[in-house]
Design a protein around this nucleic acid. Structure first.
Lengths: 127, 127
DNA sequence: AATTTATATAAACATAGATTGATGTGGAAG
DNA sequence: CTTCCACATCAATCTATGTTTATATAAATT
């Protein structure tokens, strides 16, 4: 029963709903999410962990990066995710998406400029 | 968005899930729920109010009593209720039901004893 | 009107959850 | 093997939520 409670607890915080919505169209690394939400990194890591523990997210580690994505392995959670994502007002995430896109663009142009000379690094806010 | 958050917040507490489960088969007055949960009355009233504010319960006042029941007017909440009720392990509520039944039995036998002489009053733990 | 009963509300207190700032870890680059 | 970077974790603080005790309200009975 406590398990069920934790599922709902994970969904009862605005930051976490924003994270889920950001991940709607595919995986993102932590620094992407930090940039999109414009929040301190430990704060974001905290919420990512809550969502992961509750079974809503899975992570994939690759080198220095950790990529998070929606975990659709459980039917109940998947349904909850669906109804959450569709119920978040569209304009609530406009700024997040704007920041995310700007950040990702930054990463790519940086990559292009220094490709094969210095390798990859995180752009913009990651310093 | 905060509205959506509150829906999940209401479901992320064990006492409140127990209340919902108790109401699965029909309305109950506050004193019934207090007896079933074996908790202080203000505590129960607090949780009933959280569930009501979140749109999961409605109330019906009749004389000195307030009867609460599941509010099935909204589709989303109704679905949430369904999946919650079906996911609560059966044995988790055995004691609650036992206490509820004992209490309700108490009310009736008391009623029978004094019917039409003193009118109705709450039995057992309500003193 | 005074009293009793069912429930609600308020204030004080306790606990759990979230935020922040500092530090730790592990991989990759130099 | 040292440094840098992405991320995680920790300890301290702050805030929100739940609990308790006492009191208020309102209906019904006396």
């Amino acid at each position: 029963m406590q398990n069920l409670v934790n599922v709902f607890k994970a969904l009862s915080e605005e930051t976490r709903l924003r994270i889920l919505k950001l991940l709607e169209h595919g995986e993102l690394c932590v620094c992407d999410i930090v940039a999109a939400l414009d929040m301190a990194q430990p704060k974001v890591s905290f919420h990512l962990n809550v969502l992961k523990e509750a079974g809503f997210l899975k992570d994939r580690k690759q080198g220095r990066w950790t990529h998070y994505s929606l975990d659709d392995s459980d039917f109940f959670r998947r349904f909850l995710l669906m109804s959450v994502l569709e119920r978040i007002p569209k304009d609530a995430l406009t700024e997040d998406r704007k920041r995310l896109m700007a950040f990702v663009r930054g990463k790519h142009s940086w990559d292009d400029a220094v490709r094969s000379s210095k390798g990859k690094r995180c752009a913009g806010r990651c310093k």
